[in-house]
């Protein structure tokens, strides 16, 4: 039995974390929901896949969100470092498209410590930096029981912590309740 999720999930403040997997966006949205104050989401301008604020509205108020559209990865990292160091936003989310080297990861980590803001990098699978505080892998899981009535959708996900600098690893099945704004840990489905 893994330890309680509460020890890990409101992400440790003033550190940079990483998340990968198909549900990384949902994980990031939940991290936003658990943070008070302004948020900054940094992405590159080229991908055709876009954030949908109407989808984010089920997790947190998009009025708190600022987005920065950068030309390339270098600008993304520089913007993230500037925002983390300043500390005016509570959570900085950066979409990463190439592997970070140790220096880049360490710079972000130092900036987060200096400014007191939390960072979360959305990385492609296997492209993390060794400097990250924790790394998560998130994937959606088919919910066999659909007990919340018609019209409600399941948001069941498997969260796996695959790297942790100051703690143990573990995995949890979670579900977001948009009406109650609550994150439920559910037991894994039986075999």
């Amino acid at each position: 039995m893994p330890a309680s999720l509460d020890k890990f999930f409101p992400l440790r403040p003033a550190r940079v974390h990483e998340v990968c997997g198909p549900s990384a966006t949902a994980f990031a949205a939940l991290a936003c929901a658990r943070t008070a104050g302004p948020l900054l989401w940094i992405y590159e301008s080229w991908p055709a896949e876009r954030l949908n604020p109407l989808g984010l509205a089920a997790f947190f108020d998009p009025a708190r969100l600022l987005v920065a559209e950068c030309r390339d990865q270098t600008d993304c990292l520089a913007t993230a470092e500037e925002a983390l160091k300043d500390g005016a936003v509570a959570l900085v989310l950066a979409e990463i498209s190439r592997p970070l080297n140790l220096r880049e990861g360490r710079r972000l980590q130092l900036a987060a410590k200096a400014g007191g803001a939390t960072g979360l990098c959305l990385i492609p699978e296997g492209m993390g930096s060794n400097a990250a505080e924790t790394r998560w892998r998130c994937a959606p899981v088919c919910d066999p029981v659909h007990d919340r009535g018609e019209g409600a959708d399941s948001t069941r996900m498997r969260w796996e912590i695959i790297k942790n600098k100051s703690g143990t690893l573990g995995f949890w099945d979670v579900r977001w309740d948009p009406a109650a704004r609550r994150l439920d840990v559910v037991s894994p489905p039986g075999e």
Binding site: A26, A29, E49, R50, N52, L54, G55, A57, A58, A63
Partner: peptide, 11 residues
């Protein structure tokens, strides 16, 4: 922000 029905996170 009040989407009438659930909307996806990414488009």
């Amino acid at each position: 922000w009040a989407p009438p029905r659930p909307r996806p996170l990414r488009l």
